[in-house]
Amino acid sequence: MILDDLVTVTKKRLLRHQQVLSLDELKQTVAQLPKDTQPNFLAILKQPGLHIIAEVKQASPSKGTIVTDFPYMEIATSYEKAGADAISVLTEPDYFNGHLPYLKHINDHVSVPTLRKDFTIDPYMIYEAKANGAGIILLIVAILDDQQLINYRELAESLGMQAIVEVHTAQEVQRALKSGANIIGINNRNLKTFQVDFNNSLRLRHMIPTTIPVVAESGIKTQEDVAILVDAGFNAILMGETLMRSQQKATLIKGFKEAAL
């Protein structure tokens, strides 16, 4: 399965990174950083209206190369100018053609929170995210056990970051809630098959208390989709491929914002 392969290559990459910079050395670097380097994403999500996490992504396992021209810095700054509330940056290199330096470069040029979009499987990656400027990390329930979900979220929060705890099934929603998740993302994409079902978000939304902000992820393409999600009570959407394929990214973001009114 693709998800298993992604975890395997992430483990190998993690070992390479640790050989270059040990966890203790990375912790020392992070200890010198201010705790609150970005606006608090949880506080942003609790404000009225629909919030947009705009993604900087060149490729994916299911689609291959999405765009060949990839001025990632220009894309990120255009997202912010168009009103995006946060920017998601792919840092997974083997399947998504992402790179950790992208996160650092983008963070240095935008004022909105940045999300390290990767397959977090170890505390080392959380410290890496902080060292490269992230204000948000992603914790995928399908690849973590219950104790890891708690420990990793608490570690992120102790470093001044927030965690989006991502689910795809009803059982995963229950595990996310049990872990104390403060933000839950419902992925319409099955990470084992990479098939997308837009209605997955709608089926699972009612299981999550309204006090917890919820993000809809994947398969969101039109203003009609956005309006449906707003009516269902979503606080935010994460959009990648639709934005990356568009030649009018800023116009698209503004249109989605208008659809949420």
Rank of each mutant, 00 (worst) to 15 (best):
L23A: 10
Y152C: 08
A170E: 15
S88K: 01
I53S: 04
N235M: 02
K221I: 13
V215F: 10
G133A: 03
G98D: 10
E74D: 14
G133R: 05
K104W: 07
V196E: 09
A31Y: 03
L6G: 00
N188K: 08
V9R: 15
L261W: 11
T77A: 06
D225E: 11
G135R: 02
E157C: 00
V173T: 06
L103Y: 13
M125I: 08
V167M: 11
G255A: 04
L229V: 09
G133T: 03
V167A: 12
N235S: 15
I237S: 10
R205P: 02
K81N: 08
L14G: 10
E172C: 06
L42K: 12
V30L: 04
L261F: 13
I184Y: 11
F70V: 09
E55S: 12
L155T: 00
L103N: 04
F119V: 00
I44Y: 00
I75T: 13
A82C: 08
L229C: 02
Q28W: 00
A84P: 10
A86D: 07
K192N: 15
V56D: 07
P209C: 09
I186S: 08
I136N: 05
Y152S: 01
G49T: 08
A43K: 15
T211W: 12
D108G: 05
S88N: 08
S218Y: 06
H99A: 15
T242Q: 07
T10Y: 01
H105S: 12
L191G: 01
I208C: 02
L159V: 00
T8F: 11
R189H: 12
H206Y: 12
E172H: 08
I136S: 06
S88Y: 01
N200E: 14
Q19R: 13
F234C: 11
Q32N: 12
S88T: 05
I164G: 02
A86E: 09
